[in-house]
């Protein structure tokens, strides 16, 4: 399979009328995708700034609260996301080579990883909820507040940062399911795999955000 490119048997894609050709379309879409990710970074930015601000002001409390997070679950999720980034790359390579089975296989792996991440997240959240460790005004764990009065603020940030990230993961899973459907219809081949490439970029971004979140929330404490 290596090296050989099978371009037969894929549905033909017509670039939109205002593009010169398929390449023009591909690079324009890619340009747009990079711009989109630029705005994504700034969308996350206020939460990071707020986190650093309050971490500086309430250093002890934040350290204390962070130590209560389960770093093992966080680490499992880090591994899951890194693996899924790898399978996405393999999916793109498979599409470029016209290997539709390989594409479908790797998309399925990626979706499984996505669900795996969400399940671990759900386990983590439910244990927090069971302990009454909830954001802000909902905080219902007197012992924690006694030890670290600003713990509610930490958990507000924890839930919002990981929550916003999980939302992005969920959107990613949806996109991969859509791509799986496309792949089954043989719409993604060596000549046209734009949506796959773009979703891949998005997925790497989501991965990258987690790479920052994990040490910041789980390990520093």
């Amino acid at each position: 399979m290596a090296g050989s490119v099978d371009t037969e048997g894929f549905k033909e894609h017509h670039p939109a009328h205002h593009f010169k050709d398929a390449d023009h379309e591909f690079f324009t879409v890619k340009n747009g995708m990079w711009l989109f990710m630029l705005q994504e970074i700034l969308f996350f930015a206020p939460l990071f700034v707020a986190y650093f601000t309050f971490k500086f002001i309430y250093f002890e409390d934040f350290q204390y609260s962070a130590a209560k997070l389960d770093w093992k679950l966080g680490a499992v999720n880090t591994v899951i996301l890194i693996v899924s980034s790898f399978t996405v790359v393999r999916a793109v390579v498979a599409a470029q080579r016209g290997n539709n089975e390989g594409l479908i296989e790797n998309l399925i792996y990626t979706i499984i990883c996505g669900f795996g991440f969400m399940i671990v997240k759900a386990i983590e959240y439910s244990s927090k909820i069971a302990d009454g460790v909830l954001p802000g005004a909902w905080m219902n764990n007197a012992a924690l507040v006694e030890a670290a009065p600003q713990a509610p603020l930490f958990y507000s940030l924890y839930f919002m940062m990981t929550g916003l990230h999980a939302l992005h993961v969920a959107v990613g899973i949806g996109l991969f399911a859509w791509l799986l459907l496309k792949a089954k219809r043989r719409e993604l081949g060596p000549k046209y795999y734009t949506p796959l490439e773009m979703t891949g970029l998005y997925w790497h971004f989501v991965d990258l955000v987690w790479i920052y979140l994990f040490p910041l929330l789980y390990l520093v404490g």
């Binding site: 309430y58 250093f59 002890e60 409390d61 204390y64 670290a148 009065p149 600003q150």
Partner: peptide, 8 residues
């Protein structure tokens, strides 16, 4: 007074 651990 409000948060004694903050700046100990």
């Amino acid at each position: 007074i409000e948060n004694p651990r903050a700046q100990i």
